Simulated scan of single mutants.
Amino acid sequence: MALRLLYLIFVQLVGWVVLQGRSQRSEDAEILVLRHQLAVLRRQVGRPWPSWADRAVIADCRGIRGSGLPGVSLHGVADFGAGRHRPSAAAHGTDLE
C-alpha cells in the first residue's frame, strides 16, 4: 500500500515537472489538436432518437396522450393523438410534386 502511494506521488511529480518544461507554443498546439478532435466528435454524434419504451415513459409522465400542447414534437414524433402517423411533407410546406 505504501509502495503504491509512493509510486503515485512520483508519477504526479514527474508529470508536473514535464508540464513546467513545456513551451507556450507546444501548449497552443495541444489546444488546437484537442479542439479539432472535439469538432470531429461533434460531427459524428447524431441526434438521439428515443425508443418506443422511452416514448411510453414520456407519454406516461405527460399523462394521457394529447395533454400537452397540440403539435408539439418529441424528437420528431408529432403529438396528434391516437391512430395517426407523422404529418406528411405537405403539412410542413414542402412540395413533393
Rank of each mutant, 00 (worst) to 15 (best):
R35L: 08
L6K: 14
V40F: 06
V45H: 09
L13Q: 06
L8N: 13
E30L: 11
L19W: 09
V17K: 09
S73D: 07
S26R: 15
A90F: 09
E97F: 12
V40C: 08
L32P: 00
G46E: 05
L34S: 12
P50V: 00
L38K: 15
A2T: 09
P48L: 04
F10G: 11
L69C: 02
S26Q: 15
Q44F: 03
D95R: 14
L19C: 02
R4Q: 11
R22G: 02
D95I: 10
Q24N: 11
L69I: 02
I9L: 08
L69E: 02
W52T: 05
H75N: 02
S67Q: 15
V40T: 10
L32G: 05
S67D: 08
Q24W: 06
G76A: 01
S23E: 01
V77E: 00
R55Q: 05
A78Y: 01
W16L: 14
S51C: 05
Y7F: 10
G21H: 08
S88T: 09
R42F: 04
R55P: 00
I9A: 11
G83Y: 07
V14K: 14
G76W: 00
V33H: 10
A59K: 08
V45W: 06
R84K: 14
G46C: 03
W49E: 05
V14Y: 07
S88R: 13
S51H: 01
V18F: 15
A53Y: 08
V45Y: 02
L38D: 10
Q24A: 12
L13A: 12
R55M: 09
F80Y: 13
L5S: 14
S67H: 13
Q44T: 02
S73Y: 04
V77Q: 01
E27W: 14
D95E: 10
G93R: 13
R43K: 15
G83N: 14
G76E: 01
P50W: 02
L96P: 05
H36E: 11
R22E: 09
G71F: 06
G15E: 06
I58E: 04
A82N: 08
L3R: 15
A39R: 15
R42V: 03
R4W: 02
G46Y: 03
V72W: 00
L96T: 13
Q44W: 06
R42A: 09
S73Q: 12
V11F: 13
R43M: 10
A89Q: 11
D60N: 12
L8F: 13
I64P: 13
S73M: 08
D79Q: 12
Q37T: 00
L96W: 13
S23I: 00
